[in-house]
Design a protein around this nucleic acid. Structure first.
Lengths: 198, 198
DNA sequence: GATAAAACGGAGGCTACCTCCGTACTGGTT
DNA sequence: AACCAGTACGGAGGTAGCCTCCGTTTTATC
């Protein structure tokens, strides 16, 4: 009993199998068809009935949050990498990139994330990851402001919004990469302090 | 026969009646429930069957484009108002505001607009309005660049993307007005030439 | 009025959502 | 090894929305 869990029963084998199969199928479908994909199709591909899917993940958001877990871990790994940069300006820029990639993991992801960020509903499993990345962004902004790279009027939350917007643009299949790059540059130019030629 | 039309038959009275009723009902529903509202509900409210709705407007986009017509006219009116400003910098800023309002007419409107802007499908009735506003934006940007207010690397299309993004944020119910205002300021600061203290 | 063209509308086939409950499986116990 | 209680399964089924097809009704014209 190395795992010092708090529930008495050991989790059943079929539960774990089904959960894993569901997560894998869901990831495939989210990648291929976006977050709006048919959950029935996911269940079928995982080889389970719809009832099983909904028992494991009562809402689409719950499934999404579970699938997103892996990506969240990647994001944390990136943070450590970014920390090694030292430069607060570069760090913020890198972080915004990382955020944008995270938000672009699946087409249509920004919508439910925004909904969660706004509603602050503790039952929504996407609320927590949202709050975490917003807080992290605030940290990066504060650090960059202290070194004078970022204007004082800029808030972390604003850059969170900016990043998720760009992710939305990307996912909306809207623009070519060149356009997106120019929009990103626009944002960077927007939050930077004017006398950054130092 | 003041109307010098080219078709022999006079348009039927019921056609005009139904079309008007559909447009009115659709506008109400789009305003209340966003662009994803149930078209069957719209038809029912207009007092017609689903078949009639789909004959008049074969796709959701067609209905949307027709309802949007009124707003487009408002936008044109704004353009004349803006032209009277004279100042290219102010004009661009005002234009971007007007654009954003236009894109925010209904919740969920940015998605189909983006889809149309990207696909350039001539069958999509939203493609034309999109192209028009993009062209107009390019004009404003060019004028502001000539007076030295806007950086040369900025393109009209980028600011179109920026405006539609902010509209998306707004429609996603995401942020309070204060946050949005800061994001707008970020964008303005982003496209402005640095030495704008002149 | 009569007539032919045009438009109507709702039934119906489809897909997806989500729930409920009889059945089957699993892990612990004897 | 067999049992048993608890747990999980899965699919049938009710709901909703999409869109189409075609028999019926309305309309403009003659």
């Amino acid at each position: 009993m190395s795992a010092g869990g708090q529930q008495g029963r050991k989790p059943r084998a079929d539960v774990q199998r089904n959960r894993a199969a569901l997560l894998e199928a869901a990831q495939r479908h989210f990648l291929k068809y976006g977050v709006g994909t048919s959950l029935e199709a996911v269940a079928k591909e995982a080889g389970v009935g719809p009832g099983t899917l909904y028992r494991h993940f009562p809402t689409r958001e719950a499934l999404l949050a579970a699938v997103l877990q892996t990506r969240s871990e990647e994001l944390v790994a990136r943070q450590e990498e970014i920390a090694r940069l030292g430069d607060a300006d570069k760090a913020l820029e890198q972080w915004l990139r990382a955020l944008e990639e995270y938000f672009s993991a699946f087409s249509g992801l920004p919508e439910p994330l925004m909904a969660a960020a706004r509603a602050q509903d503790p039952d929504n499993p996407l609320t927590l990851p949202c709050d975490i990345v917003i807080s992290a962004t605030e940290e990066y902004v504060r650090a960059a402001q202290q070194t004078g790279y970022v204007r004082a009027s800029v808030q972390g939350h604003d850059l969170f919004l900016a990043a998720i917007s760009v992710a939305w643009l990307k996912g909306a299949g809207a623009a070519e990469e060149e356009s997106l790059e120019r929009v990103r540059a626009l944002i960077v130019a927007g939050y930077r302090e004017r006398n950054t030629e130092a």
